[in-house]
Nucleic acid binder design. Sequence first.
DNA 1: CTAAACGCTCACATCGATGTCAGGGGCAAG
DNA 2: CTTGCCCCTGACATCGATGTGAGCGTTTAG
Lengths: 138, 138
Amino acid sequence: MRIGELAVRTGASPRSLRYYEQQGLLVSARTPSGQRCYGDEHVQRVALIRTFLAAGMSSRTIARLVPCMKRPTMDGARRASAVMSQERARLSSEIDSLAAAREALDHLIEVNRTFMADAADAADGSGAGGAGGAGGTG
Amino acid sequence: MRIGELAVRTGASPRSLRYYEQQGLLVSARTPSGQRCYGDEHVQRVALIRTFLAAGMSSRTIARLVPCMKRPTMDGARRASAVMSQERARLSSEIDSLAAAREALDHLIEVNRTFMADAADAADGSGAGGAGGAGGTG
DNA sequence: CTAAACGCTCACATCGATGTCAGGGGCAAG
DNA sequence: CTTGCCCCTGACATCGATGTGAGCGTTTAG
């Protein structure tokens, strides 16, 4: 298939696919006139690339895993294994960051909810309502 | 405290702190000569900001939460609550992406390990070793 | 007073994946 | 041959947080 179809099938723009190739993440056969040709297996390949990109891996990092995605070589495999475990650690710590942010956000959400409830109570005039004052420096 | 100390205490560069202020994430008192003055509470505030930034929130997004971090107003609170739940969803989905990438990576790691084991076996000459062939298109 | 260390503002540079435009071919249908 | 759609390369633009440097004032230690 040509680049347009691969783009449709993967959700990547043709521009991105060419970029992946330029970065060494993807290899394409060419027609005599220079147009790129891909096989079905490239769909999955691109999906993997995009998964990694979406996780914030740089194309440079992914490039170092590529040798290990297609036809592993001893050299590639050994080098890749270091990168992989390192990157795995990075992913885990990033996940932790996100989780921490989500918890902080949850906290804010609750404070916010409490404040709104208190304000509603105050507007009602009935003094009974949320436990504490909503004055926080946050 | 002045900006340098806040920087040391938060791990943010003075440059970043000024940027946060410019983006409306942080407010500072000024000495008559124009130097920024902060109180202890700003340390925590900056920490929160950095937590959110590290999670990939834009300063613009964080800015919309700020009214809700200090002295909540009805307006701010109402608007913020929308942003907050939206952003919470984004965080969750991002976490999922990262987790997916980590799983994909784990898969690669195992394939890689298997390949290396097979290669070692082949070098040993004893045909018994890893179960399948290591030839994958990835 | 002087020098060092710090602070201020302004402005430009950086990185990385992607968008977009320009100028030029390839290929199929009429 | 022409029209229309796809493709090619190359170059420049984008966004956002931060680095960096210039040029100039402030505060503090000697």
